[in-house]
């Protein structure tokens, strides 16, 4: 049984001239414990796939199964689903309540999932993401971007999920901070046996984090390839080659 099994997913926004076929016949299977990457430019539909999966985009057609449980279109998901699947968003400045302390953010999540021993759990969570108890009663504006993203990761880990959906988790951060967060995510996956489905436009980041990669363009999945093939630049689709080429040229410094 795959952790995530998406078959022939289609998402359409708007009607008539505003019609936007954002996701076209996308089929993805993510195995348990795997780290899977979705790449593409803005507007390619990669984030929409994640949002349909968690119910943030209520209308879609196709099949989505998570840990063997079939999902239906619509915003509702079972309690088990919410425990098993958590999401980390791109912008840590926008995804934390500005008037809740770290403690309040984590307490709320733990209570919602009916977990006992909130106090001890918060200590553990903060340790896991490398923040320590000193940050427990701070507000988001008292934290740096990297620290906020650590809080967002702690919140995602709170219900002890099996799957983390990562939507550009480091693109709002400096490279040095990005390295810390990527290391943290890598460590957590190894320690807790998590499954990652990660969306990013940065091929370097995806190549570092994921073992399999799917490339999206205009809503459709154009190619799926293993990280080894990507590193050897053996892409068969033109668009993938174009993406790899621009990524490498920017790493090598443009010339």
């Amino acid at each position: 049984m795959s952790a995530i099994d998406i078959r022939k997913l289609n998402v359409v926004f708007g009607d008539y001239e505003d019609r936007n076929h954002a996701v076209r016949d996308v089929t993805i299977a993510v195995e348990r414990g795997e780290s899977y990457g979705l790449v593409g430019e803005s507007g390619s539909g990669k984030s929409t796939v994640l949002r349909a999966l968690v119910g943030l985009v209520p209308e879609w057609s196709g099949e989505i199964a998570v840990l063997g449980e079939q999902q239906k279109p619509g915003p509702r998901r079972s309690h088990d689903f919410h425990r098993a699947v958590q999401m980390v968003f791109q912008d840590p400045y926008a995804s934390l309540h500005p008037r809740h302390t770290v403690d309040q953010v984590l307490t709320e999540t733990l209570r919602l999932h009916g977990l006992k021993g909130v106090d001890a759990r918060i200590e553990t969570l903060l340790d896991q993401v490398g923040l320590g108890g000193g940050y427990r009663f701070r507000y988001p504006h008292q934290l740096s971007g990297g620290q906020r993203q650590r809080v967002a990761i702690a919140r995602a880990l709170a219900p002890e999920p099996q799957i983390l959906l990562l939507d550009e988790p480091t693109s709002a951060l400096d490279v040095s901070v990005q390295a810390e967060i990527l290391n943290l995510l890598g460590d957590l996956r190894r320690e807790l046996g998590l499954t990652y489905l990660m969306v990013s436009h940065d091929l370097g980041v995806i190549g570092h984090m994921c073992s399999r990669i799917a490339v999206m363009q205009n809503g459709a999945l154009v190619e799926e390839l293993g990280v080894e093939r990507m590193r050897r630049l053996e892409a068969s689709h033109d668009y993938t080659r174009h993406l790899l080429d621009s990524a490498l040229r920017s790493v090598r410094g443009g010339r």
Partner: peptide, 20 residues
């Protein structure tokens, strides 16, 4: 040096990135 080393490189994978 730290900034240079903290960038994930497609062609030269490493287990862990160097944190500054």
């Amino acid at each position: 040096r730290g900034l240079l080393n903290s960038v994930p490189d497609l062609e030269h994978p490493r287990d862990r990135l160097e944190a500054l």
